[in-house]
Design a protein around this nucleic acid. Structure first.
Lengths: 127, 127
DNA sequence: TCAGATCGTTGACAAATGTAGACGGAATGA
DNA sequence: TCATTCCGTCTACATTTGTCAACGATCTGA
């Protein structure tokens, strides 16, 4: 588990695009980033390079340019980032998690998923 | 809801100290920050000032210096920060939340709390 | 084969962040 | 009352981040 440098705000926005697209050439990324954030192609290219350096994207040469893919799933990366934020929750992680569940719109399926996790943790804890 | 600028990594560390202490004079903060991060008093003073400017701390003059207090609870601030991170979770917030619950050590009480939230949300959703 | 469109790389620069010294004023113990 | 200590403010400066233009290499349609 190589030590990953944190993503910056702008880099997150780019990552989100690549996660959504699952894989994308520079052009695709900057077209979307243009609409979504008004960034110039040059800006996007710089961000892509920096993200590559940080190891969150991998690139494969295809013809002229590169095809980018996420090097890690969004769940893993977001989860990790959230986890380190949670360390700042002085009153404990539980309350924050609860508050999050409370204020997040969740589908039936999501609720079931959560329910399962909780049941499971109870079992681990009991005996 | 005034638009709060985000805290930076170093600022989070200071906030954490004040949240833990509930209220603290500059001296207390930088003593702890010294042990914990090796920061000089000057550094801490700068950070405190910047955090005040951002509105996450309030200060009351006491004798020579200031008494700092959190302007917002850690739950609220951490919760808010987590929420905006979650927007990057392309596969939906539910899975990330579930993965968090799964991998976080939670007390019996925490689990009950979570359970309540879930039950409540189910009720809201059903009818 | 050649002109135009694209690409990646390099260089740049302002703003934000991390880190801290120095200084003048206030508190305090002798 | 005076020296010491501590405080807040000001200033500084290196690094990181946000933004982008320009340039030479490369692809592609005619």
């Amino acid at each position: 588990m190589t030590e990953l440098k944190d993503l910056t705000a702008a880099e997150w926005k780019i990552m989100r695009i690549v996660w959504e697209e699952r894989k994308a050439m520079t052009r695709e990324v900057y077209t979307i980033a243009m609409e979504r954030h008004g960034w110039s192609p040059a800006t996007v290219k710089t961000l892509l390079r920096r993200i590559i350096d940080k190891g969150y994207l991998s690139a494969t040469k295809i013809g002229n340019g590169f095809l980018y893919r996420p090097a890690k799933s969004s769940i893993a990366v977001v989860g990790g980032a959230v986890r380190s934020l949670l360390d700042n929750a002085v009153d404990g992680t539980g309350p924050v998690l609860a508050q999050l569940v409370e204020t997040t719109p969740l589908s039936q399926k999501d609720l079931d998923l959560l329910q399962n996790m909780i049941d499971q943790k109870r079992k681990e804890q009991k005996p």
